[in-house]
């Protein structure tokens, strides 16, 4: 099966991990890799939302260049040879996972998405069996003021999927980021309690795109909360069809 649909758009042919692949010229290396069942880990990326290149897990090598590139925002190019799994990349990915786990208070055993968590499963997939860096253990809030949902900042990895889905798909722009560096925090409106937000439509898209247990539905107990993502590609394709 050719993953490249018949289209007027020019096609590029190149290699990923030695395998010959092709993709439309507007596609990213990540899209091309996934279309060919080559796995590149990601946490901030979600098909249907804009890519920000923030988590740095999808960094790949291009032969002949010493610079690493994020696969989610790097366009395919004719003739390049992409390496997704060198020793160096494996080491860096594991370190990035360790840094994420060290940043806030990720206690899988008591988490509402235990067993349905992208952070947890990515750590397992990358073989991260412990975190060498000291846990920073910041003291962070839980905002449960919303009638249906809650946010536990202890579990937030600042991927900004909630910010993007709210802005780009729901177009409410309830979510944004405040502060900077290690003190960054996702907020609703102007850092008001979520339950008092005047812009929130209570659509729940943010909850469902959240890769961790940071955003969850109230009333779900530990390990009960599974996220539903089917709506996203559907909404995106419907919207594109309407624009055309």
């Amino acid at each position: 099966m050719s993953p490249v649909p018949i289209t007027a758009e020019p096609v590029k042919t190149f290699k990923i991990d030695g395998q010959d692949v092709s993709a439309r010229e507007t596609e990213s290396i990540l899209q091309a890799a996934r279309a060919h069942n080559i796995d590149i880990p990601t946490l901030c990326h979600l098909e249907g939302l804009s890519s920000t290149g923030a988590c740095r897990l999808c960094m790949v090598e291009i032969k002949g260049s010493n610079k690493l590139l994020p696969a989610c925002v790097t366009r395919v190019q004719e003739g390049i040879e992409v390496v997704t799994n060198s020793e160096r990349l494996v080491k860096y990915r594991r370190m990035i996972m360790e840094l994420i786990f060290s940043e806030r208070n990720h206690v899988c055993a008591v988490c509402v998405v235990n067993g349905h968590c992208e952070l947890q499963s990515t750590a397992q997939k990358l073989g991260m069996d412990h975190v060498r860096y000291p846990y920073l253990n910041p003291q962070l809030d839980v905002d449960a003021s919303h009638e249906r949902f809650a946010i536990d900042h202890n579990r937030c990895i600042l991927c900004t999927r909630c910010v993007r889905v709210c802005d780009e798909i729901e177009t409410a722009h309830t979510w944004d980021v405040m502060g900077r560096g290690i003190g960054s925090k996702v907020i609703t409106d102007f850092n008001q309690p979520w339950g008092e937000s005047e812009t929130c439509t209570r659509c729940g898209k943010c909850v469902n795109v959240c890769p961790t247990g940071a955003l969850f539905e109230k009333g779900k107990s530990v390990a009960e909360m599974a996220k539903q993502r089917q709506f996203l590609p559907y909404l995106v394709s419907r919207r594109e069809a309407m624009i055309e």
């Binding site: 920000t52 290149g53 923030a54 988590c55 740095r56 990035i96 840094l99 994420i100 060290s102 940043e103 860096y133 000291p134 920073l136 990895i157 600042l158 980021v177 502060g179 900077r180 560096g181 290690i182 003190g183 960054s184």
Partner: peptide
């Protein structure tokens, strides 16, 4: 650098703090 990191990418945000 830690204070001035924007916080967007993981290596800079957490790496400088560590």
């Amino acid at each position: 650098s830690k204070e001035e990191s924007c916080g967007k990418c993981v290596p800079c945000r957490v790496g400088t703090a560590q």
